[in-house]
Design a binder for these strands. Structure first.
Lengths: 198, 198
DNA sequence: CCAGAAACAGTCATCCTTGACTGTTAGCGG
DNA sequence: CCGCTAACAGTCAAGGATGACTGTTTCTGG
């Protein structure tokens, strides 16, 4: 019984394996957190041998850093579709709902998990700092699309960072709070922007 | 050479050792994070034997839960003195500076570290959820003292949760951002409250 | 003053993780 | 078609963490 596998170039095989490994890493980060994401766990989830894993990522640190880059790219693909689906762009309320999505994706959770680890890992911290700068630009651009009518409002630059920080904080606090509390937050943010951008 | 140690009751000895262990745990949480806070590390810092540590806290989990309670109590003692030192209570700016203190103490960092771990530890999560409720009451009471002149303002209830969430988010983002960014945040919050509570 | 319990001390087996190491296969350039 | 290299497979040693276990000291109630 000979293998009748589809012939693939080495580059294709390699890329596929690498992608599987990173996807497994992200899944593990979401489900088990940074501490639970051992190289063995990733290896199991990706169904690769130890040799394959170590070949692509010589150390656990390099694996996580690679995951950072991947997460950043994937995060971009989360909000875009939501924006396209939104009928009534320009509304404060719809904009906040969409923006909140980007803090709720599994990717955001994985990134958050890495932030925690970064406090004691200089290499990871640098990687995340660079990624954070890029991501902030993205978010700013996103907001400009969400609320084109308000970008020139004198309170626009004031409210945006506060709103984003608040979402960060609320997303984090969700671990120990109820869903109802989160819903209240959403309402409060909408009310706040309505007042500030009146 | 007989020991000439001061005679202490068992309860005193026990309490002292227990306190040393918890203090060491908090220190380790701040310096090394949750993952780095092993029972061995705590044992070394507290200069106690393994038997002593395991006697007071049979498992690592119980140690961390005990640290939660201790942290909560200690957190209370951070802001109080700052409030007393403040000359000009009632001012928005001073109030924000003081409130921000409570997010900068080592204790806040340790608590944050435990929040990260709580996502994968039900026992810890429950302990933190209870503590979070208490702490939120405390913060509300603190704000009432900081801004007695605004508690009846129609926007008071609206602004407070947003401000606190934003501080949470900013405190967390500090890991990957500059101090200058933090200073900007402080200014923005002040400006925001000035507008909302005009 | 003494029996017993609480508070500590020190050691150990077990488990887990990590990355190094050796062996094998599949594709690519010449 | 052939030698080489990248891609993968599987095993292993070293280190560290955890909690169980046994032994010793210190206090307290009767």
């Amino acid at each position: 019984m000979t293998t009748v596998a589809v012939r693939r170039t080495q580059a294709e095989r390699s890329a596929a394996t690498r992608a599987r490994i990173i996807a497994a890493t992200v899944d593990s980060l979401v489900e088990l957190g940074h501490a639970g994401t051992t190289t063995l766990e990733v290896q199991r989830r990706a169904a690769v041998s130890r040799g394959a894993l170590l070949h692509h990522f010589p150390s656990r640190a390099e694996l996580l850093v690679a995951a950072v880059a991947e997460l950043f790219q994937a995060q971009r693909d989360v909000v875009g579709p939501a924006m396209l689906r939104a009928q009534e762009l320009g509304s404060i309320d719809v904009g906040i709902d969409i923006l909140w999505l980007s803090f709720n994706s599994p990717l955001a959770i994985a990134i958050d998990e890495l932030w925690s680890a970064a406090r004691n890992d200089a290499e990871l911290r640098d990687a995340l700092a660079r990624q954070d700068r890029d991501q902030r630009s993205d978010v700013r651009a996103l907001c400009a699309v969400l609320w084109p009518g308000y970008v020139d409002h004198p309170n626009y630059e004031l409210a945006l960072p506060v709103l984003i920080d608040a979402m960060h904080g609320a997303a984090r606090a969700r671990v120990v709070r109820s869903d109802r509390a989160t819903a209240k937050r959403l309402a409060a943010w909408k009310e706040l922007l309505h007042q500030l951008w009146a």
